[in-house]
Amino acid sequence: MSETTQRTTDMETENRTDTQTDPETTTGETEEQVQDEWRNYEFAGEPKLAVDDLDVYYGDDHALKGVSMDIPKNSVTALIGPSGCGKSTFLRCLNRMNDRVKSARIDGSVKLDGQEIYQEGVNLVELRKRVGMVFQSPNPFPKSIAENISYGPRKHGDIETGLLARLLGRANEDERDELVERCLRDAALWDEVSDRLDDNALGLSGGQQQRLCIARCLSVDPEVILMDEPASALDPIATAKIEDLIDDLSEHYTVVIVTHNMQQAARISDQTAVFLTGGELVEYDDTDKIFENPQSQRVEEYISGKFG
């Protein structure tokens, strides 16, 4: 028995003292066996992201405990679980945004296309270009819509505008206009804003701002898009638009999305990972299986609303 599993089992007994008498827990199937089953979750092809035994500490707080999971390419993977279960922390490990938190310490391995991202000499600029991120609350820059989109490529030198570039004959403003249009179209925002690209992005509605953030994320041509509860601050109509968009995006991009909303996870994701209190990954499988026939007792209770 590995140490991780041992610890996990201990945690569970603590958490579930009130359900000890529940007849279903005495069916003889231990948590260990359950985990073994989903640990063998298999899918065709190579994983886009392979996470192995990932631990995260914030100071003394052990926020994520020995998480391992493989994320398949060009699909939507949902991370669900109660508040404080570490799902956002997990997400932020995938493009090393947790490096920006001073107190965070990260152990374990994350491989993008088989390449370790937690090792010496990783180019963070390149990593974050390949693994983009959309945040919980819409955070467009206080600049024009077009500038928001072209910001990333301009800073990376892929697009050059301005006086100096024009004097040197290196300005590629047509390319910029194409990029802006393509990203906005991909984010299903073009029709709404095409006539006011030079207006300040802060004048857009919340839902439009969030789609602009997705478009901005697409501008650096990522392979993976991480979304941290992208619809939690939006109304149902804006949420529906974001969900349709995620569905479209998954044709070309690998999407990993954190959500509080289990219906949303069930609607949009191909596979679902359930994190429960204490920072452990309890179950990871096809979304249908998680929601219809979860292996773990705790997951079933969480999904049916009894726990969490």
């Binding site: 493009n95 600029v125 467009p140 820059f141 600049k143 990333g152 800073k155 990376h156 501008s219």
Partner: peptide, 23 residues
Amino acid sequence: EYRDASAALGVTKWQTIRSVVLP
């Protein structure tokens, strides 16, 4: 949030300060 958004696009700290924080 501005700093996070900029970092998530792979933009370096100094460029973020110059193009987002200072304005």
